[in-house]
Amino acid sequence: MTGQCSLEDYLQRYSETGPLAVAVAAAIDAIAVAAVDIAELTGKGLLSETSTLATGRNSDGDLQRDLDVRADAIIRRCLGKIPIAAFASEEARDVEIRDPHGRICVAVDPLDGSSNIDINMTVGTIFSILSAPDHFADCFRQPGTAQLAAGFVTYGPQTSLVLTVGDGVDVFTLDRASGCFRLVRRGMLIPMHADEFAINASNRRHWDAPVRTFIDECLTGIDGPANHDFNMRWIGSLVAEAFRILTRGGLFLYPSDARPGYGDGRLRLVYEAHPMALIVEQAGGLASTGYQRILDLSALSLHQRVPLIMGSAHEVRRIEELHCDPLLIASATAPLFARRGFFRV
């Protein structure tokens, strides 16, 4: 029964399902404990001694805030109490090899959307759990299909944990009185068709032709090929966008574009796109680069970036169709005469 089932009870039952389930359950429990502390930290805002200002850049060049570092430290401390083979974080340059006898590897984005903390917008933690391969150097070079579990936590009006252990998607909300997470939604399903899409429309001039075409179709609404009207959303926080899609459907696009540094997308494959793709697919949606299923990709490097288009299956398939359209492909090299060129008919 939802509301009565605690995360502890849920994980206890799950731990009995397979040889690696005990280790996976222990890691999820540790991350949940960390999430309670991070929720407290982020919830204090300016009352906290932690600065929300950028204090430098992480190893991959993104702005890093004191909150990012503090969240990373909290997760490390909590995971340090269990035997994991390897740990990876957005806030660290390299993979950290921990226990050579550990059976799982854990990758995290400790505080996704931290740039939004000053405006009291939802931020979160994202995690991915995989089995430990024979060679630890390959821990995070596995395809997304190799994930044993994935999830994210949102720190907003409620602190919620979205979780999949490969058998659907369930949502837990933090009961602040007891300090534990309780099951509130079981078997989340994303509608086949979207009524909302989320994209940073200010970058339209930089998008590739398939993305421009798809958004133009959405904007024409009932008068266009989609034959229905859309609403547009853009929160700018991956965890918030994903939670919205899970609860009421829709589409999220963070495509590659023509700006310097954006040619391969901006989201990280290992600890952002992979876990989100597993969650979305377990809820009946799709996640793609536009050309390829996200879960089929294997990372060549820990902080590899990738385009991410995820949500309702019908719209994701439409975007993939457009990426394979020969006229749109031709428009990249001959825009004057292609479908979206000057002499469009």
Results as ranks from 00 to 15, higher is better:
A273E: 06
A273I: 10
A273R: 08
A273Q: 11
A273L: 14
A273G: 13
H274V: 03
P275A: 04
P275S: 10
P275F: 04
P275V: 06
M276A: 09
M276S: 02
M276P: 05
M276E: 08
A277C: 12
A277H: 08
L278W: 00
L278Y: 06
L278K: 08
L278P: 01
L278D: 01
L278S: 09
L278A: 06
L278G: 07
I279Q: 00
I279P: 00
I279A: 06
I279S: 05
I279T: 04
I279N: 04
I279C: 07
V280T: 12
V280W: 01
V280N: 06
V280F: 00
V280H: 00
V280I: 15
V280S: 00
E281R: 07
E281P: 00
E281A: 03
E281M: 02
E281Y: 03
E281H: 00
Q282Y: 02
Q282T: 00
Q282S: 09
Q282H: 02
Q282M: 00
Q282F: 01
Q282A: 03
A283L: 10
A283D: 03
A283G: 12
A283W: 01
A283H: 05
A283P: 04
G284Y: 10
G284R: 00
G284L: 02
G284Q: 05
G284T: 07
G284S: 02
G284K: 02
G284H: 09
G285E: 05
G285M: 06
G285T: 07
G285R: 00
G285N: 04
G285V: 02
L286M: 10
L286Y: 06
L286W: 03
A287P: 01
A287V: 01
A287L: 07
A287N: 05
S288R: 07
S288N: 09
S288W: 04
S288Q: 11
S288V: 04
S288I: 08
T289R: 11
T289Q: 02
G290Y: 04
G290P: 03
G290C: 09
G290S: 11
G290N: 10
G290M: 07
Y291T: 14
Y291F: 11
Y291W: 05
Y291I: 09
Q292S: 15
Q292R: 15
Q292V: 15
Q292P: 05
R293V: 07
R293G: 01
R293E: 05
R293A: 07
R293T: 06
I294F: 01
I294A: 02
I294D: 04
I294S: 06
I294G: 00
I294M: 10
I294P: 02
I294V: 14
I294Q: 07
I294C: 12
L295T: 03
L295A: 06
L295Y: 05
L295W: 01
L295K: 04
D296I: 03
D296V: 01
D296C: 08
D296H: 12
D296K: 08
L297F: 10
L297H: 11
S298T: 15
S298P: 13
S298W: 12
A299C: 15
A299E: 09
A299L: 14
A299D: 10
A299W: 12
A299G: 15
L300W: 11
L300R: 15
L300C: 14
S301H: 14
S301Q: 14
S301A: 15
L302Q: 13
L302G: 12
L302W: 12
L302E: 09
L302D: 10
L302F: 13
